[in-house]
Simulated scan of single mutants.
Amino acid sequence: MILARFLEGLADHWEGLESTPTERLGSAAVDLSVAFLMSLAEVHEPPSSRPRRAELLEEIKAFIVRNLGEPHLSPQLIAAEHHISVRYLHLLFHHDKRTVRGFLQEQRLEHCRADLTDPSRAGRTVGVIRARWGFRDDAGFGRAFKKAYGISPGEYRKRHFQAR
């Protein structure tokens, strides 16, 4: 109903629009149409495709974990590597009740946390560890780490080694 009204309104006013708004509205029409069709596909999805979807999601997660150190790892790159659209990638993660970027950051943070408490990595700086797992800068890493664990990476490391 929403899509139909949008398309009818677009058709009624198409002639009077300039090129830039026309391109944006056309893109919005495509996005709405894809979302509508994907919702229909989910309702009518055959049960046999569900295991393949779960298998693909596990393949993608394994790919992400193998490539955590790549700072340019993104949904676009991940989708391209698996020959799927970015929209479908997001849909796969949506069924898993998470986001692609959220999973990526969660994995990077967990690997950093493990390295910060690893005695064999005690000589490495926090900056070296964050870069190893794909975080591009200290400030962004520090904010993300503190949000996830309630403490800065340096303080986390310090407390861990003091407790030993």
Rank of each mutant, 00 (worst) to 15 (best):
R87E: 15
F93Y: 11
D96M: 05
V128S: 15
Y88T: 10
E106P: 00
G123S: 14
S120C: 11
G102I: 00
Q107G: 01
R87G: 15
T117D: 08
D96P: 09
P119W: 13
D118I: 06
L116W: 05
T117H: 09
I129H: 10
R98D: 06
L92Y: 10
Q105L: 01
R98W: 03
F103M: 02
F93A: 06
R113I: 03
L91P: 11
S120D: 11
G102P: 04
A114W: 00
C112T: 07
F103Q: 02
F103H: 04
R87K: 15
V100W: 02
G102H: 04
Q107M: 02
H111R: 10
E106S: 00
P119T: 10
R87C: 15
R87I: 14
R113G: 06
S120R: 11
H94K: 13
V128E: 15
L109I: 00
R101T: 07
F103V: 01
A114Q: 05
L104R: 04
Q105G: 04
G123N: 15
D115S: 10
T117I: 14
E106N: 00
D118V: 07
R124C: 09
G102F: 01
H90S: 11
T117C: 13
D115L: 04
Q105T: 02
F93I: 06
H94V: 05
T125N: 12
Q107R: 05
T117L: 09
Y88Q: 11
C112I: 07
T125I: 12
R108N: 03
V126K: 12
R98E: 06
D118E: 09
F103P: 01
G123P: 09
V100N: 02
G102K: 03
T99R: 06
D118C: 09
R124G: 09
T99I: 01
R121M: 15
S120T: 09
D118S: 06
I129N: 13
H111Y: 04
R108I: 00
G123C: 14
H90R: 08
T125V: 08
A114E: 03
H111I: 00
Q105N: 07
R101C: 07
I129P: 13
V126Q: 12
L92R: 09
L91N: 12
A122I: 10
E110Q: 04
G127I: 06
H90G: 10
A122C: 13
E110H: 01
H95T: 13
T99Q: 06
Y88D: 12
R87W: 14
Q105K: 04
R101V: 06
T99S: 10
I129Q: 09
T99F: 05
T99C: 03
S120G: 12
D118N: 10
D115V: 02
D115E: 07
A114S: 04
R98Q: 08
R98V: 04
D115H: 05
H95I: 08
V100C: 07
R113C: 06
R98I: 03
K97R: 03
E110P: 01
A114V: 01
E110T: 02
V126D: 12
C112A: 07
C112E: 02
T99E: 04
A114Y: 00
I129K: 10
H95W: 12
F103W: 00
L92T: 09
D96Y: 06
G127L: 09
L116H: 08
R121T: 15
